[in-house]
Design a protein around this nucleic acid. Structure first.
Lengths: 230, 230
DNA sequence: CAGTGGTCTAGACCACGAT
DNA sequence: TCGTGGTCTAGACCACTGG
């Protein structure tokens, strides 16, 4: 058997047998290297495979850790991140990174709004203190006047409903696998190049006007999507 | 700038400028190594990042190639792989790998069917000749008697409808990011450890009986999912 | 059979984290 | 300050692909 597979299996077994619990730190790369009479390249090959499988994850310059349970998420439902997380036993939190005030500057989302001025809200969300996602929310400035005065670390859907009388009636998600953009990797303390699930969501009111246009970058090992079809 | 980023950007530019077309082969790792006065480790680091981003992909021992367009897929609809692919300009094909005849042996899917005898159909699907997915279809033997006599490289939904008068009324998908199981990697001529999208689909008739239980392993760079919600 | 990709060795330097 | 992870060098052998 290949050496990096031997190392992989060893760590996998430690996790399976519960000798390494969710969130706990793995031995250092150099100590694994010694343990298997190998080199760091090979050890890191094994760690990379386990990361792809979602068994372990790394935090930049801090080390490797055992991946906790995934959050089960329904992209086709009007999810409330906090309620959903709590119902699955997580402690959720949200950090506002930046609210860009309305501008006519060209942004990725501008053309969805006929180049009218828009807000761009960037947030990070956490489960049990672990950063799992970065999101950008884009919406029309004229429709959500003085958005900066609202509480922005909760449900945006609720803010839109209660303060602006705007209801989301339907939406479209596009979901693909790629890597975190560098700015998101930095926020989540991940290495550049970390795989993620990119979710692009366009949400509409019942008159088919675009309410908001969102980009979400989920760490690939934090989420399992559930979709019901008919 | 980091060396592997320089190499990454160089290849990215070749692709963006159209000097490397979809499906075409990259220069060998050793020639890239010489071109950048570097080592294969570093070159392979750059290639791995591009693979994670979905820009290039590798075929086992054959080399690196530029990734073609993604297939846009609606997991919540009763998709017909062939029709969908063709509507997006692909030439689809399907290869039956194996039909396991009914048995009471324990399988992953058995418990979904109260441990009754089931068929297990394994297939691979291709777009323009490129393997993009391996799927396992599990269904009750008693309900789909002599399934082996049907044409199995087309739409299974159609076979169920036309030959067994079974209609799928609704379904649930669970979607997560992981790596190909080794047997699937072999079928698709990919290295062990290749990232993929794992789609688990349970499909029901209008009396809520389970019609079939499927596992699909999609190469992560071949698919973009579209989900509509309300 | 030559060249390629897959795996592996045995080191090194640096920036950053923990302490 | 010490150890860690992130990056990189300069080789090697083998199995397999493709000519």
């Amino acid at each position: 058997m290949l050496l990096y597979q031997v190392i992989r299996n060893h760590i996998q077994n430690l996790v399976n047998e519960g000798r390494l619990n969710a969130g706990s730190k793995l031995p250092s790369e150099r100590s694994l290297q010694e343990q298997f009479n190998s080199t760091r390249i090979t050890v890191r090959e094994a760690l990379a495979r386990l990361e792809s499988e979602g068994v372990i994850y790394s935090q930049k310059r801090k080390g490797w850790f055992v991946t906790p349970e995934k959050l089960k998420w329904h992209p086709a439902r009007k999810v409330n991140f906090n309620a959903l997380s709590e119902s699955q036993g997580f402690v959720p939190s949200t950090k506002v990174i930046e609210l860009m005030t309305p501008s006519n500057e060209h942004s990725i989302a501008s053309f969805h709004f006929d180049d009218k001025p828009i807000y761009k809200l960037t947030r990070a969300r956490y489960l049990d203190g672990r950063g799992v996602l970065v999101e950008e929310i884009h919406c029309l400035a004229a429709r959500f006047n003085h958005l900066e005065k609202q509480v922005l670390n909760g449900s945006i859907t609720d803010v839109m409903k209660q303060h602006y009388q705007v209801d989301v009636s339907h939406e479209q998600c596009n979901i693909s696998v790629t890597v975190l953009p560098d700015y998101a990797a930095e926020i989540l303390e991940k290495n550049s190049g970390t795989p993620c699930l990119k979710v692009q969501r366009a949400r509409y009111d019942n008159e088919d006007n675009l309410v908001d246009f969102n980009l979400e970058f989920w760490l690939h090992d934090c989420i399992e999507m559930v979709v019901e079809g008919s």
